[in-house]
């Protein structure tokens, strides 16, 4: 009796826990379709108008409160975000995977040092890293912009990729690689035919997660983006600072959906790669 009661209580708690996590972000999504332009949290009727507005189409309810003064700015921010995330995720996946391979497949001197070097960027508070990068770029005379954002993102994305690929490598039996080497394959052939296909799902998972972490980064980008190169999260922050308006719901909902789709894919790939060893 006692144990079923406490089990039920725990289950109820579990449901509340998930409500706490998902209700707030669910609210944004639901109210992004609310047509009430004056009080956006009082439901009036269903509308797509906020989405139409941010893409620059005319809409009925928004004429009086037209808010996104420049759709071009928003599109520019989305473009910057996508470009930065693609380049930073690819580069950090290459660098992180190479480092993981070196540390898990070879005896390396100073292994502890390298491991600490790969992990610390992730632990560094983002405000410290953001400011350090800002001072660094300005004092060596590199103009802030898309390039500096890419470099900045790579520093901490390497850590994430390194951890994901390391987890994959740690669980892999090296006997197949040994067999390949014993049968006379060159190291490169062994890598291409044996190692790479086995770690590929983990690497792809790492790539997607790195992509979405880069897309979502706010603090480091905030400090090193300069005047012209805004990314989507920084753009949303500056919009919120000017005032909460229904259009932000629509932009936030779209970013929300995009993040959820890409991250789901990344988590799925990583989980699959850890199961099938």
């Amino acid at each position: 009796m006692h144990s079923t009661f406490s089990t039920r209580l725990l289950s109820l708690y579990g449901v509340l826990f998930f409500l706490f996590i998902y209700l707030p972000i669910g609210l944004i999504f639901v109210y992004s379709f609310n047509s009430n332009p004056i009080n956006m949290m009082v439901w009036q009727s269903f509308t797509f108008d906020w989405y139409r507005t941010i893409f620059g189409f005319s809409a009925e309810v928004t004429e009086a409160t037209l808010y996104v003064e420049s759709t071009d700015q928003l599109i520019g921010a989305v473009q910057n975000s996508l470009i930065v995330a693609s380049v930073a995720a690819s580069l950090s996946t290459l660098l992180g995977t190479a480092a993981a391979l070196a540390l898990y497949r070879f005896r390396v001197r100073l292994e502890g040092f390298y491991r600490a070097l790969m992990m610390t960027p992730m632990m560094m508070p983002d405000i410290v890293l953001g400011i350090a990068l800002l001072i660094f770029f300005v004092s060596i005379g590199i103009d802030l912009g898309v390039t500096t954002i890419m470099i900045g993102h790579c520093t901490f994305l390497i850590s994430y990729v390194f951890i994901i690929v390391s987890a994959r490598l740690a669980g892999m039996d090296p006997s197949l690689e040994e067999a390949s080497a014993d049968l006379g394959a060159t190291p490169f052939t062994t890598f291409r035919r044996i190692t790479l296909p086995r770690i590929l799902p983990g690497v792809m998972g790492g790539l997607m997660l790195a992509f979405i972490i880069s897309m979502d980064d706010l603090v480091i980008t905030y400090f090193i983006s300069g005047v012209d190169a805004t990314t989507l999260p920084v753009f949303i922050l500056s919009m919120i600072r000017r005032g909460v308006k229904p259009e932000i719901n629509a932009i936030a909902s779209m970013l929300l959906m995009f993040s959820i789709i890409v991250a789901s894919l990344g988590i799925y790939l990583r989980a699959r790669s850890e199961k099938r060893l």
């Binding site: 579990g14 998930f18 707030p24 997660l209 970013l255």
Partner: peptide, 29 residues
Amino acid sequence: CMFLITLPFFVSMIVRLYAWLLILRPTGV
């Protein structure tokens, strides 16, 4: 459940905070 808990980590921090702005504001939920 593990998947559902990991997922919000990848949702933009600014979007998740914005949700609480909608909840706590004087005209909020």
